[in-house]
């Protein structure tokens, strides 16, 4: 009942559907095939995270090395705690590294900038579960303007 033509065309249809799926996954969403457990987790506390969101990138000099995986409020200190999921390939950051919340462009998305610290004999590398202490909070435009006005009025 089925002709060869129908079978071939249906096969092609399914193949092109799958091809579209693969294009979307690998070319558009840029999913990287990684072995399981290739991430490690870091924590950082900020006084203000501004517009940082889950899935915001962590960048070192513009290279994405991880992403924000969770944002919580510390129940005792009442400051935001950010959980970072870092790529295992980039695991050579010293404990002295610092994190700042930066903005791409004037009105763009906010991301975390990681600045690697100095390396010394008694400085260990950051490993899974560590906390980065040296953090710089987001610049809030209103606060900046407030400060500017305050200092201007003193002159």
């Amino acid at each position: 009942m089925l002709t060869r033509k129908i079978e071939v065309l249906v096969g092609l249809f399914i193949l092109s559907g799958l091809a579209a799926f693969l294009v979307l996954v690998f070319n558009v969403a840029n999913v990287e095939v990684k072995a399981n457990g290739s991430n490690y987790t870091l924590y950082a506390k900020f006084s203000n995270i501004g517009g940082l969101k889950v899935r915001s990138p962590v960048k070192v000099g513009g290279v994405v090395v991880g992403r924000v995986s969770e944002i919580n409020l510390d129940p005792t200190e009442l400051v935001p705690v950010v959980k970072l999921s870092m790529d295992k390939r980039f695991n050579q950051f010293p404990e002295t590294s610092s994190l700042s919340i930066l903005t791409s462009g004037l009105l763009g998305e906010q991301f975390l900038g990681l600045t690697p610290g100095f390396i010394d004999d008694d400085i260990a590398m950051l490993v899974d579960g560590d906390r980065i202490d040296d953090t710089h909070s987001a610049l809030v435009l209103e606060e900046l303007i407030g400060q500017f006005l305050y200092s201007a009025s003193k002159d």
Partner: peptide, 11 residues
């Protein structure tokens, strides 16, 4: 499948 094709072609 058609929606995937549509989206990929659209992009």
């Amino acid at each position: 499948l058609l929606a995937l094709i549509f989206t990929a072609v659209g992009i």
